[in-house]
């Protein structure tokens, strides 16, 4: 059974590596399958309607078992949540997540020292930290009473769903339509996930924001 899972996992990676189509999984040669490869991004109102939740996933298509248990966040890679509050597609606020010695540290939301390609960390902006959750263990959650920010970092089920194998067949000219029922190519795979829930008051309070997530390497 375990062997079958491993074979399925390897087969999935081979298919995925060939077609490179997904939410953002393995989207480009330079980051494909590496520690900075963002697979997906979500932003939504939290269970508490006063909060917004940001979810960034990296390192997709992890098979259950050893592939997931050995996956780690790269200490040289920052995940930066960019927030534009005045509709010019330039970040006015950032939330930076950086792993160090088994913990994920969260800075912000704060106005960054500079915008764009390069980032530094303003250490005074530290908002919270959380133990990186272990595969097979309970989810470790931090809930800062000072900043009102909740945080999680660790392996999770990949929340993305898509019959990406059949889409690839259509794009390749081998099929003319989707199947019914379809088959979720991402079923049974895991990602490394960072979840941070932030009071709306720290993001401008009302109106709309534009947001995107970046991985940046030291």
């Amino acid at each position: 059974m375990k062997k079958l899972k491993i074979i399925l996992g390897v087969g999935l990676l081979a298919v995925a590596g060939y077609f490179t189509v997904a939410a953002d999984h393995i989207d480009a040669p330079a980051v494909m399958g590496g520690s900075s490869d963002i697979t997906d991004y979500f932003a939504f109102q939290g269970q508490d309607n006063n909060n917004i939740v940001f979810v960034a996933n990296v390192q997709g298509l992890l098979a259950p078992g050893s592939a997931t248990s050995s996956a780690t966040f790269d200490e040289n890679v920052m995940i930066e949540f960019n927030i534009d509050t005045n509709a010019d597609a330039v970040e006015d606020l950032v939330i930076q997540a950086v792993p160090r010695d088994g913990k994920m540290y969260f800075f912000g939301p704060y106005q960054p020292n500079s915008t764009g390609i390069s980032s530094t960390i303003k250490s005074e902006a530290l908002a919270t930290s959380v133990n990186i959750s272990q595969y097979g263990g309970a989810a470790a959650i931090s809930n800062s009473s000072v900043s009102g920010i909740k945080a999680f970092a660790g392996p999770r089920d990949d929340p993305f769903f898509f019959d990406f194998a059949q889409y690839s067949e259509i794009i390749a000219g081998n099929a003319t339509s989707f199947n019914n029922p379809g088959s979720d190519t991402f079923a049974g795979t895991n990602v490394m996930s960072i979840v941070v829930e932030v009071p709306k008051a720290l993001l401008g309070g009302s109106g709309s924001i534009n947001t995107w997530v970046e991985s940046k390497r030291k």
Partner: peptide, 8 residues
């Protein structure tokens, strides 16, 4: 830190 990947 220098940009490598992004998405929205």
């Amino acid at each position: 830190y220098t940009l490598e990947d992004q998405m929205a």
